[in-house]
Nucleic acid binder design. Structure first.
Lengths: 352, 352
DNA sequence: CTGAAAGCGCTTACAG
DNA sequence: CTGAAAGCGCTTACAG
């Protein structure tokens, strides 16, 4: 970003007025243009003499001059801020990504501002508007259902937009997702290979693409094996809490010997339901979760899970975004990245 | 913040040039000063005629004019950005706070940029510098060990600084913490009242005030009851992982009938150690954790925990910070808020 | 009651 | 090889 290493912490010198480009120019008896060129690494390009370069460099270091970020942003329109829009930053999946993404951004001089939509379409629109108004340089978005049009319009702003977690088949944009179909297919085959035949699948009643894909992987694997398919679609926001819906489902289907929860919050509720019913895992029912998280490894028995490659997701998001920002691939066609999941086999799916 | 309601999403109109204050002024044949006054709600104060006010207001709405955030920040020095510095944004405690804090900030037109120090003092200094360079309006900081001087210097910048989670006794600044001493004291008395006498305490080898306070509460309660004190101080970053250190401690102290883990990451490792040793909770050993999190409620048996009032912490942080930002209490003396914890009694501390 | 103008700290064509 | 100047879009003393 800057070509000069600034070692002096500047906020330690509040008392003295902050140094501006004018100060440097005046003290050296040269113009601010020249100082600007040197500071921005355009000295050679502008053919500034070696002598002037070194005098500027020296004084800049001495006085701890840094171009004011606000003035620069105002002038150039670049804020070095990236907007990160998620359902809920407090969910482990998003907060883990937040950590990795921030670290990657950091290395390139960017900062992240985030916001949680809480799954509200209205809120999501407002937040995108706020990001836009604040001139973020790029967007990282877990696309809320029904926001396809807004995101499409955002693309006209020519700022890079990278979707993740979900995508919308009709949107021709960058995205980084995981291979949901293969993830659940592999998990289903794992259960089948361990002798489970009556495998239930718990999902939510939605049109979200990633949830549909997960269901598809399960259905395909079971049909290929000639095993019966049994799906519970939870209605969120209905009067009945999901723990109860799952408990009812399990009671009504006593023949099930395994169940796949298609999201970690469903698995949490599933574990609660199973505990309520007093079922033993894995002897009475085998459990498998989409999206691994700390609890599953620590639970007794530990729970088999389809893990998302968090670090790889973050790395890919940032590689695409930074690539576009640094205009190495500003005009390249959309990069659509699908990462493999990995199955963490644990005690909850022990062979019958 | 703005007195005018802007309903038209502006990012939907990329094609047409963004409207500036000049456009409004030109179209109405008045000066930009007048437009500015009206837009900033200073019309009455500046005694602008009702006629002009309504004409400006109308056109502003019609064209969807919004003052450019970047220009305004540059001019006024206010960025409406708050810097949030934590150990690790992916930890549930911090990410939950991040969610609440963002929501509160949102209501007042502020955005949050965050950074994780990863417990590195050097990193933390750099990050504070970056926040400073970006002209954040305020700081919310989980004070890293050894950064007291830097934070003290930051106070000279006259931007509000609110510490949370930890504080440094010598620093006369705003902070929001919890009552660690009472938290562990209450927890200890709970165990004693349930018939446990040999209660161990697992903490880390640190000078962090909040960890010392937790230890103090435990020690006081046990001494008051005439019960023996037994403390394990984990050395983080040593060759031996903490799970092993805890397992060794438990093996060497077979007389323990309960153990308090003074942080949730210690409890996680503790649960792993207990599982390794094959000890039954709570029959062979009772477990209690400082800092509640989802896993503890779901674990079998569910684990008793000292819960921090996350929403209250966030609300208090923001109340103090926004109060200072809106200069209602710009010069008031430091607000030092200590919030009570609450004990979530669960199966892991069932009476012997 | 309203406007002309300075200025926030930069970057960048343009001129020489 | 370097400088004078315009301008980014605002806010705010100052003048009338």
């Amino acid at each position: 970003l800057f070509i000069i290493a600034f070692s002096t912490p500047v906020y330690k010198n509040f008392m003295q007025k902050k140094v501006s480009i004018k100060d440097i120019a005046r003290k050296l008896g040269i113009s601010i243009s020249t100082v600007s060129f040197v500071v921005n690494g355009k000295a050679r390009e502008k053919r500034i003499s070696e002598d002037v370069i070194s005098r500027v460099t020296k004084l800049v270091e001495e006085l701890g001059y840094k171009p004011d970020a606000l003035a620069r942003s105002f002038r150039t329109g670049k804020t070095y801020i990236i907007g990160f829009l998620v359902d809920d930053i407090s969910r482990p999946f998003f907060s883990s990504l937040a950590r990795f993404i921030d670290e990657e951004a950091e290395k390139n001089g960017y900062k992240i501002i985030y916001s949680s939509t809480g799954n509200s379409k209205t809120k999501a629109k407002e937040l995108l508007q706020i990001f836009y108004d604040r001139h973020v340089d790029g967007y990282i978005i877990a696309l809320p259902e029904g926001l396809e049009n807004e995101v499409e319009e955002l693309l006209h702003s020519k700022k890079p937009v990278v979707l993740f977690d979900r995508y919308f088949p009709g949107l021709d944009t960058d995205y980084v997702i995981i291979d949901n179909v293969s993830g659940t297919a592999e998990a289903s085959r794992h259960l089948l290979s361990r002798g489970f035949r009556h495998i239930g699948f718990v999902t939510i009643n939605t049109i979200e693409q990633q949830m549909l894909d997960r269901q598809k992987g399960y259905e395909h694997a079971l049909r290929d094996a000639g095993a019966p398919v049994s799906i519970l679609k939870i209605d969120y926001g209905l009067n009945q809490p999901s723990v109860q819906q799952i408990a009812t489902y399990l009671k009504k289907n006593p023949g099930l010997d395994a169940v796949i929860f298609s999201a970690n919050y469903l698995c949490m509720d599933g574990l609660r339901a199973i505990r309520q019913l007093g079922l033993k895992i894995p002897d009475e029912i085998s459990v498998l979760s989409f999206d691994d998280f700390e609890l599953l490894e620590l639970y007794s028995p530990s729970v088999t899970a389809i893990a998302q490659p968090l670090e790889a997701i973050a790395a890919n998001i940032m590689a695409v975004l930074l690539g576009r920002l640094e205009s190495k691939m500003a005009e390249a066609s959309p990069r659509q990245i699908i990462l493999p999941t990995s199955l963490k086999i644990r005690e909850s799916t022990r062979r019958k």
